[in-house]
Design a protein around this nucleic acid. Structure first.
Lengths: 132, 132
DNA sequence: GCTTGACCTCGAGTGCGCTCGAGGTCGGAG
DNA sequence: CTCCGACCTCGAGCGCACTCGAGGTCAAGC
């Protein structure tokens, strides 16, 4: 069952369009160890992104979008790359991140409520308390 | 009714403790035009923060905590400093920020749900779909 | 055979938001 | 009078996450 030359894969421009990242950022992520493996290359040396690459990038995007630092995404990628046996560590990393995001969201929500009150003041829907 | 030498005001260290910012950051904010006015000084030249200053800093903290860029906080401070007549602009700025924060929170929430699903996979509470 | 354009590498540059350090002043305690 | 600690200014430095540019390769189309 030698799967020879299935799909050629996406060019970096296509991968950029698909992921919402810039080609610069895609190369940067790879350089910086955020990808699981170096991306495949065409004989020309051009990158060819697989569906698996895109799936991984989507996860990286989710982690980044929720504020995980690049270095921590790299740590996660390192764990996955290391293969089986560290699932507990991966889980711990994700759970810690999850918890931090929840705390941060609650903080933002609370601050936002205070800002809403100030908006109400400007709209004349409430009495100003002290400051402008 | 000449209010002579009421309270002396807080030192920068006290203001830092009260606001949660560092003394460096307090000076930086002032330098950068985020304060409504230059902070009062003792005869020694040392800063003396009033209750009003602290209230304003609290607002700045709320704006920053919800992700408003420093330059936009400055723009808001500029408006307030300019005095009456631009309430509509201030309101618009706050509302635009409010809207952005809501959109961002929703995005984070959605990404977080996807991450939760991945956590479930690691906990064996769900079947893995495709990627690690 | 030449041009064009998409890609490559490597290293430097950018914008943001602080953060730090050197060198100096000031006021009160000993 | 001296020392100390808290403060001052000014300018540089830092960490992060990209972002850009110079200089080069390669393959396809004219």
């Amino acid at each position: 069952m030698t799967t020879v030359a299935t799909h050629p894969g996406l060019t970096i421009a296509e991968a950029a369009a698909a992921s919402g990242l810039s080609v610069h950022t895609l190369r940067y992520y790879e350089r910086d160890g955020l990808m699981l493996d170096p991306v495949d290359r065409a004989p020309s040396g051009h990158r060819r992104y697989t569906e698996g690459d895109l799936g991984w990038i989507a996860l990286v995007n989710r982690l980044r979008a929720t504020g995980m630092p690049v270095r921590e995404v790299r740590a996660y990628a390192d764990l996955v790359r290391a293969g089986d046996g560290n699932e507990a560590q991966r889980l711990e990393l994700l759970r810690a991140h999850h918890e931090r995001v929840l705390v941060e969201m609650e903080s933002v929500r609370a601050h936002l409520v205070a800002i809403e009150r100030k908006i109400d003041v400007y709209e004349g829907r409430a009495a100003s308390c002290v400051e402008p």
